[in-house]
């Protein structure tokens, strides 16, 4: 029977179909229209543009290579937006990978827009030790961060770091976190609740919307959709705008599989009960 065969379909076939649905639009994007979300993307953008000139913002890059396509694509527009407005940026991360592999992309972007490393921005890299390290930076940033950036350059050779003596609200106008999981924004809500927090979540906002409502996060965006919106609103088109088509098509395929799976299950159940009664 057709429905029984469909219900017992080899999972590898589903993987291949979903894989192709993701692959084809990457090769040939459709160019689906994108509308800007007022509650999330516009609010996120407005918050960044309201940060006063010459303030210092901390970029917490808490993701790994697998998050580069989605999260990495909104780091660069945010970096460009703030740097062009004269806002200073200190990058770091609670995850090992992103502060390092984003360095070359940030350097390239900085060169494009004329930002000077050490004066306009610094990347302290990943500092192991978890929350104890961040707590130490709140007491003494230099000591907590071992006094060196991601290239082992001493803080006293980087003029911007003269202004960064503590990880507190007097030093940082905001923390912007790009997170692919835990540890993430929870660290800042727990240990630095006084510093305004902006968050970019991987996959989507999901259950994190409650933090926006409670005011623990001032603005947030999530998923490829809002990464694409952010690229458009900042006029800095990158990966997310192109990849959104692929993700949308794959979601449609998954929905189709869920619907077909449910119909198959109902049909098989009905046939089994008919067979039992006869």
């Amino acid at each position: 029977m057709f429905w029984r065969k469909l219900l017992n379909i080899d999972s590898k076939i589903i993987y291949v179909v979903v894989g192709l649905a993701l692959l084809l639009p990457v090769i040939k994007p459709v160019g689906m229209p994108v509308s800007i979300s007022e509650e999330y993307t516009r609010r996120f953008y407005n918050y960044l543009t309201d940060i006063p000139k010459d303030a210092v913002v901390f970029f917490d890059l808490s993701f790994r290579e697998t998050g580069e396509a989605e999260l990495g694509s909104s780091v660069l527009p945010a970096f460009e937006l703030l740097q062009k407005r004269g806002v200073k940026i200190v990058c770091g991360g609670q995850w090992q990978q992103a502060p390092f592999f984003m360095q070359s992309r940030l350097e390239k972007k900085a060169e494009e827009i004329g930002s000077v490393y050490g004066v306009d921005w610094v990347n302290i890299g990943y500092k192991p030790g978890g929350t104890a390290t961040w707590r130490a930076m709140m007491e003494d940033f230099w000591k907590g961060a071992a006094g060196v950036d991601c290239n082992e350059t001493k803080f006293d050779e980087l003029p911007l770091m003269d202004r960064v003596r503590k990880l507190d609200k007097e030093t940082f106008a905001a923390i912007v976190i790009w997170q692919a999981g835990t540890p993430g924004s929870g660290t800042w809500m727990q240990y630095a609740p006084d510093i305004p927090l902006l968050a970019v979540y991987m996959g989507g906002i999901g259950g994190n919307a409650r933090y926006l409502r409670s005011g623990q996060v001032q603005a947030m965006i999530g998923g490829m959709q809002q990464a694409a919106e952010f690229e458009i609103i900042t006029d800095c088109l990158g990966d997310a705008t192109g990849l959104l088509d692929a993700q949308s098509l794959a979601v449609l395929v998954v929905i189709a599989f869920i619907v077909l799976g449910n119909i198959s299950w109902i049909m098989v159940k009905r046939q089994d009960s008919l067979e039992r009664s006869s």
Binding site: E68, A69, G203
Partner: peptide, 9 residues
Amino acid sequence: LGKFSRLLG
């Protein structure tokens, strides 16, 4: 969606 993003990358 997060898994899709990883694969897209």
